[in-house]
């Protein structure tokens, strides 16, 4: 046993307000604990710094999925299993569903939460690339109130975020979009299930009236944070026909937006090449999309 529970204090609030009040009273002293799928691993490994935690898991108000005509709002405690089961997410946000399906095993999916996945800020996390592509927004809440920010830009460096010490991630909002959208998500891990990504690719493209109106691409596992790849998006979005999709230029630009490393899970070389290949697959799917105007 590498840990001593006496080094920790875990307080269970009755409400979100109470949790936030505690966090406001001692800024930085209390860290949020949701489904435990990251923090409890560190605990057992003897690597969880001692101190106080606030037990968010019982706060049902943070585990809701609300659908309105223009958005889906997910409580931060929405689990991967919740995501997979939701019909609107299945229909309109399949990359998020796919990410949830491929995160850990079933027992992890029952406990791992979207808020935790974002807050844990691993560059190899599975859902963030999908969330980036879907233009997710985050609600950060503190005793002072709440603020909404675009998810893009939330991760400021390796394991660094814009979350203040007195804030929790409360909700995520995904704007709904009607019309033809192409989704392409692929996680590359060391095995077919229960794996940590080496590279994770999410790409979507919107077609209107036979034209490409927007392309979004995000990658995990190739930089200190998950990254959006605007340069590559612009190159592809400029195409007016399938033939005009400039794969070579897109690949070259993608490579410039990555900073992969060698570690115990893979090599920089491999990550770079596979990310490019996944982009190549995305381009191939995009070319074949029936939504293009027939010349």
């Amino acid at each position: 046993m590498r840990f001593d529970v006496a080094a920790y204090k875990l307080r269970t609030p009755q409400s979100v307000q109470e949790a936030l009040a505690w966090m406001a009273a001692e800024p930085g002293a209390l860290r949020p604990l949701a489904g435990g799928t990251d923090l409890m691993v560190l605990l057992a490994a003897g690597k969880l710094p001692g101190g106080q935690f606030v037990n968010l898991w019982p706060l049902r108000e943070l585990r809701t999925i609300e659908v309105t005509s223009d958005s889906v709002t997910l409580g931060a405690l929405t689990t991967y299993s919740d995501v997979q089961a939701h019909p609107v997410l299945q229909q309109e946000f399949p990359m998020l569903v796919e990410a949830a399906r491929q995160t850990g095993g079933w027992a992890i999916q029952n406990r791992g939460t979207l808020g935790g996945n974002i807050g844990n800020a691993s560059p190899a996390a599975d859902s963030p690339p999908a969330l980036l592509c879907y233009d997710a927004e985050l609600e950060l809440r503190s005793a002072q109130g709440s603020r909404w920010l675009p998810y893009h830009g939330f991760h400021t460096g390796y394991r660094q975020t814009l979350l203040r010490p007195d804030e929790i991630i409360a909700r995520l909002r995904l704007p709904r979009r009607r019309g033809q959208r192409l989704h392409c998500y692929r996680k590359v891990g060391p095995r077919q299930a229960q794996a940590i990504s080496k590279v994770c690719f999410a790409g979507c493209a919107d077609l209107e009236d036979g034209r490409l109106v927007s392309v979004r691409i995000a990658l995990g596992g190739v930089a200190p944070t998950v990254v959006r790849c605007p340069e590559t998006e612009h190159i592809l979005a400029a195409a007016t026909s399938p033939a005009a999709l400039d794969e070579a230029a897109a690949r070259a630009s993608l490579s410039r937006q990555m900073a992969p490393i060698d570690d115990i899970r893979s090599t920089a070389r491999y990550r770079r090449r596979v990310a490019e290949n996944l982009l190549g697959q995305f381009v191939a799917v995009l070319r074949l999309h029936p939504g293009w105007a027939t010349p």
């Binding site: 691993v41 060391p190 095995r191 077919q192 940590i196 115990i264």
Partner: peptide, 16 residues
């Protein structure tokens, strides 16, 4: 052994 955890030393699952 640097990858001395089950998360990092990869054995096959039912899916493999």
């Amino acid at each position: 052994m640097a990858n001395c955890r089950m998360t990092d030393y990869i054995i096959p699952t039912t899916m493999d």
